[in-house]
Design a protein around this nucleic acid. Sequence first.
DNA 1: AATCCGACTATCCTTTCGTATAAATAACCT
DNA 2: AGGTTATTTATACGAAAGGATAGTCGGATT
Lengths: 223, 223
Amino acid sequence: MQNVLSFRAKDDIDYSTEARAAPMRILIADDHDLVRDTIAMFLEAEGMAEIVSVENLDAAVQAADASGSFDLVLLDFNMPGMDGLQGLTRMKEANDGCPVAILSGTATPRIAKDALAAGAAGFVPKTLGAKSMVSAIRFMVAGETFLPYDFMQQEEAKTVANLSERETEVLRGLCEGKSNKEIARDLDLQEVTIKLHVKTLCRKLDAKNRTQAAMIARDHKLL
Amino acid sequence: MQNVLSFRAKDDIDYSTEARAAPMRILIADDHDLVRDTIAMFLEAEGMAEIVSVENLDAAVQAADASGSFDLVLLDFNMPGMDGLQGLTRMKEANDGCPVAILSGTATPRIAKDALAAGAAGFVPKTLGAKSMVSAIRFMVAGETFLPYDFMQQEEAKTVANLSERETEVLRGLCEGKSNKEIARDLDLQEVTIKLHVKTLCRKLDAKNRTQAAMIARDHKLL
DNA sequence: AATCCGACTATCCTTTCGTATAAATAACCT
DNA sequence: AGGTTATTTATACGAAAGGATAGTCGGATT
């Protein structure tokens, strides 16, 4: 398992994190005590952070309002008050535009991508090792963007539509732009059979024709 | 969803990179003197690395054979002896499996992805700022994978086929799985006209039917 | 044994796609 | 003005796709 650091070119601003006068102020918002405590422990062991931890979004927003913006805010994606990525937007405003990252144990690559698109400074899966997490946090504090490569490489859930083996084979043919006749020849079946499979595929994938079915399959990485 | 933080073996070993007894040994292979010298200068300024620099792949392999494996090897993608990503494989063997990263000023996101798939520890565009590059190197030395987010966000070249404005509109319809009739209605044209455009699209995209054309368009991000 | 179900096949029919050929219009370039 | 190119429309035909209905077959269930 490897992790990747991703940068959004902001090299000129805030060049050296180590040379900061004040310690980093980090806000952790997660409804699991264990998670908050563990992250806080590791960060403080590095002597690099002053941690504030809360257990829901409202408390996080209040903390930012009360004590000024944090260098970095970590928001659990599944936490009271988050409401998907809307909580991210709220928090970003409350934190005066300083980096806000999403923390999650369950979210999908799709959500991670959306989070970055919505302005998150990064996405931190809870499966990340401690060292990597500390590094990730340090980078995000420096205004850069963190996204774990392996995590993103995960295929989108293949269980969107449950297709039979045959249907999958036919769908593969569709995605290669083959005709029913060609698919039939390849699979050693009759053309009518393929037509039937295409029909059921369209129903299962909610497509109105083969082209749309192929596009949906590609978009959802069903193959 | 308990064991939220998983402490794998990797985290316990080599926990703090700053506390290493021996300095990092890094090999830079690039045929541009300026690039080598600049990277070496920055790394040494951080007091964190012992740099060996060479100007082609053969010299890099020899260096690894002669003086033992390096903590990290940076290979220029465009350099005598590289031969695409084959040089990466050679170097990985010579470096006893220790991380080898690709360095390039010209490579595309496509190539970066291939490099990672081929086992590279990361991909470092030469457009990266000094601070980011140093950080990236530190990460890769720690056994993690580096990939710049912004760089990967670049769209694949759209100049694969040059389509007229109309053709692009029709292609968009194809990708939505619309019928010729529907596209014709949307664009306020006759169905025959759409047929013609679809035909020329198939020719330009080297597809044999609408479905394949749509898939090609999607794969190459033509829209 | 009876039955249910998934995969496959068969016929028939309508719609859509793909191709060819021909031609009109407008814009742009030299 | 002549030429090129993009865009459009028309007519026509064969191929492919899509839909409906019904029947076969093997395996699993009850």
